[in-house]
Design a protein around this nucleic acid. Structure first.
Lengths: 195, 195
DNA sequence: GTCTATACAGTGATAGAC
DNA sequence: GTCTATCACTGTATAGAC
């Protein structure tokens, strides 16, 4: 009992740090985010962070897996819809729903991937790619269930469109871009014929 | 005579620094690129850099305008083609031609824009947006000349697709993505009916 | 104009008290 | 397990010799 309580407490602090890392690094980027920034956001004393994460890279990895977890929650939710077409449209709706965040800070995973691909080869860049791959694989699955030829090509187009519209919305600071492109993607999904 | 020679020399050094800034920052990102990195790449003594650029931000701005210059060269070249459809297809071909660089470091302007949008509001983020806007405006012009309705929406879709495929190719380290999506875009441009 | 030396600030990480 | 104090290092920027 005492044991599990201690673990739960420790786990809670660790979880606060993970979520803070994901949020702050999304806003500021991984490079310019300091350990102190994350400690402050998680309300944990600075020096104590190193008890939970031995290096800053471990914190970046934690942020990445937090994003993966968020993605899992979303797709698990969409998977409850019976029609794959509706699942895809639900995904797009979710993207558009995040338009203000995307216009301000871009796609959490996409912007992090861009940054890590320029970093010093700690393998973190590959980790970021894996998170994006999760989304690609899920989308491919939906297109296949819809009976589409070249489902992975379609997934590439869909996810690419999302990353592109997020980047443009972010660079031009215009959430309206997410709406315009989102509407186009919805029409595209609707236009697909079932085989 | 002596005067112009001196100016030319100074200009040459400054130009070397601009180009080095653009290249190195594309590979490493602006944040983790040090003044020393740029000085080394341009073969200029470290301390001397500050004679030409008073702050690091000025070097980032220089890198940005160097990218804008490259874009101007490309579009000016494409503008010599008589058919706007061929001009758009030429642009896509140029993107695919850069697939290895894109897979390794992403789109120079796009990745820089992503990074600067997380920086400390020196107005550099807006500058990056302007460079992307140059490309959007040029593409819109071509679609309009083709007699398309909603030319700026089409430009958004085209440039968004480019940014998206560059990001995915970069994150997954796969130049093949540039080829697949490039082929799709070419087919799309071909399928547009003239009004 | 060109370059060297250095001041100064900020950051990741560690040692060790509690 | 928790937290404070501190070290070692890196990087921007400046002062000033040549």
């Amino acid at each position: 009992m005492k044991e599990s309580a201690r673990v739960r407490t420790a786990g809670a602090k660790r979880q606060r740090l993970m979520r803070a890392a994901a949020e702050v690094m999304h806003r500021q980027g991984a490079e310019r985010t300091t350990i102190a920034d994350i400690a402050r956001a998680a309300d944990v004393p600075v020096g104590n962070v190193y008890y939970y994460f031995k290096t800053k890279d471990e914190l970046v990895a934690a942020a990445l897996s937090e994003h993966a977890r968020q993605l899992d929650l979303l797709t698990a939710d969409l998977d409850r819809l019976p029609d794959p077409r509706e699942r895809l449209k639900g995904l797009i709706a979710a993207w558009v729903g995040q338009r203000d965040l995307a216009a301000r800070y871009g796609c959490p995973t996409g912007t992090l991937a861009v940054e890590l691909d320029k970093g010093e080869e700690g393998g973190l860049d590959v980790e970021a790619g894996k998170v994006i791959q999760l989304l690609l694989t899920w989308a491919e699955h939906q297109f296949r269930e819809l009976g589409q030829p070249d489902p992975d090509g379609l997934a590439l187009t869909l996810v690419g469109a999302y990353q592109g519209m997020s980047l443009l919305a972010n660079a031009l600071r215009d959430p309206g871009i997410m709406e315009r492109e989102g509407a186009r993607l919805l029409a595209w999904i609707d236009s697909l014929q079932v085989a």
